[in-house]
């Protein structure tokens, strides 16, 4: 029994799950049952993949011990690259990979600068936040490019599917990515290297792990997912605005932290990041349905972030007090 309790207390995403259940219950009651009805769920699940995909990348990178503030800008830059090319008459099969390549390049530059010059990634990616946002506006000329209708296979990403049209295609893409990244982290040797690199860098280096390459790979994956998420939003909206994704980087960090990811690296799960992203969507939506002034959203988000970290630290302390696994 004690052991079972400890296993649950040790799960970093535990706090997030508790908050998610609590808030869902509160909003369900406060909104007179509107919150969990099919129509509202459909709306929430349609938006979730965009934040959640970014959160997955940021969570992975934070577990690896690094940080990416440029995801919000990449979220705009990738689809803008694609949009400008499409407006110029390029086919989707070229424009889409081109956008993804730009996202990967941003991640590569973030990674190389951080590792090569031993700069805190907070600084590197803060710089990249401005650079990538500026590049987005420059290539667009300040106006969203006019993408010819049917230039994008929107149905592949935004069509409603499933029982009662509950999900958008983007939700399936998100599920697939979430599953793949989770398995990569927990079941492959590369995942082991990521956790070791973030958990205790000197040990990882001493054990011969190519930590520089591991970090750069995580930066690239994080950027790629941010770009992918941006492209989904643009297909949903129909046109790439230069301003999309502003503030998303901090929401993604909040999602990761609410989900139990440690800023210091080594601790966290992909599921936690997803739960964090879901919580953000739930608060955003639930406040509106409860007829609370929307300006309270950031207040709630901020309180939740700090509260989750405090609760997490407390749970970890409790868990450590239960000693069942050490010497017999």
């Amino acid at each position: 029994m004690k052991r079972l309790l400890k296993i649950y207390l040790d799960k970093p995403e535990m706090t997030g799950i508790v908050f998610l259940i609590l808030l869902t219950a509160v909003f369900e009651i406060r909104s007179d049952g509107v919150f969990l009805n099919a129509f509202n769920l459909q709306g929430m699940l349609g938006l979730l993949p965009e934040t959640a995909l970014v959160a997955i990348g940021v969570t992975l990178l934070m577990i690896c011990g690094e940080f990416d503030l440029s995801v919000g800008s990449v979220f705009a830059l990738m689809p803008m690259t694609m949009g400008v090319m499409l407006a110029d008459g390029w086919p989707f099969v070229l424009a889409y990979p081109a956008g993804m390549t730009v996202a990967l390049l941003v991640g590569l530059v973030n990674g190389i600068i951080t590792v090569r010059f031993a700069i805190p990634s907070f600084i590197t990616t803060l710089g990249m936040l401005f650079v990538a946002r500026s590049a987005t506006i420059v290539i667009s000329g300040g106006f969203p490019p006019v993408i010819p209708p049917d230039a994008m296979p929107k149905a592949l990403f935004t069509a409603f599917v499933g029982p009662g049209d509950m999900f958008r295609m983007s939700f399936l893409w998100f599920l697939a990515v979430a599953l793949l990244v989770s398995l990569m982290l927990s079941r492959t040797n590369f995942g082991n290297w990521i956790r070791a690199t973030g958990g205790f860098l000197p040990a990882a280096q001493a054990m011969g792990i190519p930590t520089a390459r591991v970090k750069i790979a995580c930066f690239m994956l994080c950027s790629l997912l941010a770009g992918f998420a941006g492209s989904i939003q643009v297909m949903r909206l129909g046109a790439p605005l230069p301003s999309i994704g502003e503030g998303l980087e901090l929401q993604a960090v909040a999602a990761a932290v609410i989900g139990g990811t440690a800023l210091t690296g080594g601790i966290g799960t992909i599921l936690g990041g997803i739960i964090g992203a879901t919580l953000i969507r739930v608060i955003d939506n639930g406040l509106v349905l409860s007829r609370v002034d929307a300006n309270w959203f950031k207040m709630a988000l901020g309180t939740l972030t700090v509260g989750a970290v405090i609760l997490n630290a407390w749970l970890r302390q409790k868990s450590r007090a239960i000693r069942v696994e050490t010497e017999r």
Binding site: N192, R195, P202, A206, G208, I209, G266, I267
Partner: peptide, 25 residues
Amino acid sequence: TIYQYNSMVPTMSIARNMFIGREPL
């Protein structure tokens, strides 16, 4: 080499630490 400040990652399990960088696949 076994280092002063340990060649182990504290946030990982014993089994995972045993095989860091040399995992059986």
